[in-house]
Amino acid sequence: MVSTTTGKAREQARTAADRATGEGAGSADGAAGAAGLVVRTGEDPWSEQELARVREGLEAEVERLRRDIAEAQTELAERLSDSVAGAGDDPTDTGAKTYQREHELALAYNTRDLLAQSERAIQRMDAGTYGVCERCGSAIGKARLQAYPRATLCVQCKQREERR
């Protein structure tokens, strides 16, 4: 069952996306304005200041994550290039070093994932589709996006995903 709110959110998203790809879309840098973003029923529309704060936070996060990834890559390359560093270690030391390396690789992978999510959120702002659930097309919710600006699913769709 598709509610009227969901239908409206989809239409608003389509209209915003059409505006973003059409002539004169958004501001001089190509970003769609806050006025075109969908919100849930009962929420105030996005103001340009609110959207700018969220965008600035995401851009700062992107820069920090890029630095973290570069540092992790440098450290990992140094460890892997030193072939004699573990020579003579007993099996316990070797196992501990292997665990540490795998842990660092997992952290680097998570950092890359956060970077991709943050970049995608910025792209969605530019396209005018920020705030639209990728699964059902309804509004994600302004409060949810202010708390977790990388969200791509509404609460209901996220709950369904986590139950699987």
Rank of each mutant, 00 (worst) to 15 (best):
D113T: 15
K97P: 07
E56G: 08
E56A: 10
Q146I: 11
E102F: 04
V84E: 15
R112I: 04
L145G: 05
T98C: 10
R124N: 09
R55H: 03
L58G: 04
T15Y: 10
R14C: 10
T129W: 03
L105Q: 11
A31I: 04
C136P: 03
V132Y: 05
E75W: 13
Q100E: 13
R150G: 13
S27Y: 07
R66I: 15
P45Y: 00
L153T: 05
T21A: 14
G95C: 10
L145I: 04
E43W: 00
E59G: 11
P149N: 07
Q100N: 11
C154A: 05
A85C: 07
W46I: 00
T15F: 10
A77S: 13
A60E: 08
G42N: 01
R14W: 08
V39S: 00
R150P: 12
I69V: 14
D93Y: 13
D126R: 15
G88F: 06
A143R: 07
T129Y: 03
G24I: 01
R64I: 13
W46A: 00
V62G: 05
H103R: 15
T98V: 12
W46V: 01
R64H: 12
V155C: 11
A116G: 12
A139F: 02
L153N: 03
L76E: 14
E56C: 05
E63A: 15
Q12K: 08
G86E: 14
R64G: 14
R53D: 06
L145D: 01
E61V: 08
A139R: 02
C154L: 06
A70Q: 12
L37A: 04
C133M: 05
E63P: 11
S138F: 08
L51Y: 00
R53G: 03
S27W: 06
Y99L: 14
A70C: 13
E78P: 14
A16L: 03
T92I: 14
D29P: 03
L51G: 04
A31L: 09
V54A: 04
G42S: 00
R14D: 09
V84C: 11
E119W: 06
R66T: 15
G88Y: 07
L107I: 10
Y130H: 03
L65Q: 08
V38H: 03
T21D: 13
E59Q: 14
R112M: 09
A127Q: 12
S83A: 13
Q117Y: 11
L107N: 10
E56P: 01
K142G: 02
R53H: 08
S138P: 10
R112W: 07
D44Y: 09
L153E: 04
Q123E: 14
Q146T: 12
D18A: 09
A85G: 05
E63G: 15
T94V: 15
T111Q: 09
V39T: 01
E50N: 00
G86K: 11
